[in-house]
């Protein structure tokens, strides 16, 4: 076991997969000479050269599409977006080309491509730079979507994403890159589509992913002090969703709170609530609660931003509501 940052875990995954398969290449803004806007690709240009670590102009729509074309031509592109706020410029290629290619070609052309980069809010970056896109992306049939919360999951899921023969969206987090954690030595793969129980409990299930894992774990600690045993289920994959794991946990605790970074309307939590009410209705002791970002664009002011974001305090309050403690 080595202790790595989330950033270095991603870096290892990229390096190992590029060593393993010469058709894997990385393309994006500042990935080469500048060593990555967030230094995820540090050292890769030196090791693999400019043919495989490709610096692009600021042209998200264009280079995402070039990635799709390269995948059609037999390569395995990893397309880095400096952040997912800029990837919306490329949504046409992700949604209309990558996600549809296999289906509309009647199964002839598959898409072994990865689109990755930081998603969601960091600190005080204001409205256009603080957006969590997972519910948009998970909406699309033909895509897989993962959102690792720990260094080990980041490495294992990125490796799976690169080896997958379908388009995979990897949602990272600017606020996660410095996070340290244990990463198993040697070949470490995390299969796409499996949730992970990050803390066991008996009274309530906190369903989370990506940055909200930290929120849920903190909430669980605070709840423990109030004699409430919270289980923390990290989804890791948003599409496919590990429905069995969610149902199993809810059947055990009979109560659930979904904590996510995105907005409430048509969010990931809405999908999970739909699953739970349909397939675990008889096991539920309370309506499922959701904690999301406030239903507004992200404000710049620090206090307003804090009030807008999901927080452990909000998750604790929601857990107490489903337990009818207040």
């Amino acid at each position: 076991m080595a202790t790595l940052t989330y950033r270095d875990a991603l870096n290892q995954a990229l390096r190992e997969e590029m060593q393993r398969d010469p058709n894997v290449f990385l393309m994006g803004e500042e990935v080469g000479v500048y060593q990555g806007a967030y230094k995820v690709s540090r050292g890769l240009l030196e090791e693999f050269g400019p043919q495989r670590i490709v610096d692009t102009p600021i042209a998200e729509l264009g280079f995402a599409g070039i990635g799709v074309g390269a995948a059609m031509g037999g390569l395995r592109p990893v397309i880095e977006f400096m952040t997912w706020n800029f990837a919306v410029l490329a949504l046409d290629q992700i949604v209309n080309s990558a996600a549809k290619m296999l289906y509309m070609s009647g199964g002839q052309i598959n898409m072994p491509i990865v689109f990755r980069g930081p998603n969601g809010a960091a600190l005080q970056l204001s409205s256009q730079h603080s957006q969590a896109w997972e519910s948009w992306l998970a909406h699309i049939p033909g895509l897989k979507v993962v959102a690792p919360a720990t260094p080990a999951d980041a490495k294992g899921l990125l490796k799976s994403a690169i080896r997958d023969n379908n388009p995979v969206i990897v949602l990272e987090g600017e606020m996660l890159y410095n996070l340290k954690g244990d990463v198993p030595d040697g070949e470490h793969i995390v299969p796409i589509g499996r949730a992970d129980l990050k803390r066991e409990g008996t009274d309530v299930t906190l369903v989370c992913h990506s940055k909200t894992l930290a929120v849920a774990l903190k909430a669980a600690e605070q709840l423990a002090e109030q004699n409430v045993s919270a289980e923390v289920l990290d989804l890791r994959s948003l599409r496919p969703l590990d429905e069995a794991a969610i149902l199993e946990s809810v059947k055990k605790t009979n109560r659930a709170v979904v904590v996510e970074e995105g907005w409430p309307h048509a969010g990931i939590g809405a999908q999970i609530v739909d699953l739970i009410q349909r397939d675990a209705f008889d096991d539920l002791d309370a309506p499922v609660q959701r904690i999301t970002q406030a239903d507004v664009p992200m404000p710049y002011n620090k206090l307003l931003e804090r009030a807008a974001k999901a927080s452990p305090e909000k998750a604790v309050a929601a857990a107490r509501r489903v337990l009818y403690l207040d």
Partner: peptide, 30 residues
């Protein structure tokens, strides 16, 4: 980020606005 800012503290450095003066912003997506 203060209430007296030209975008009421909601925009910040990248999103300065003053429509009355014809200053139509500060935009963050290149």
């Amino acid at each position: 980020g203060k209430a007296t800012g030209c975008s009421k503290g909601k925009g910040g450095s990248m999103h300065l606005f003053d429509a009355k003066r014809g200053f139509m912003g500060g935009h963050g997506i290149v």
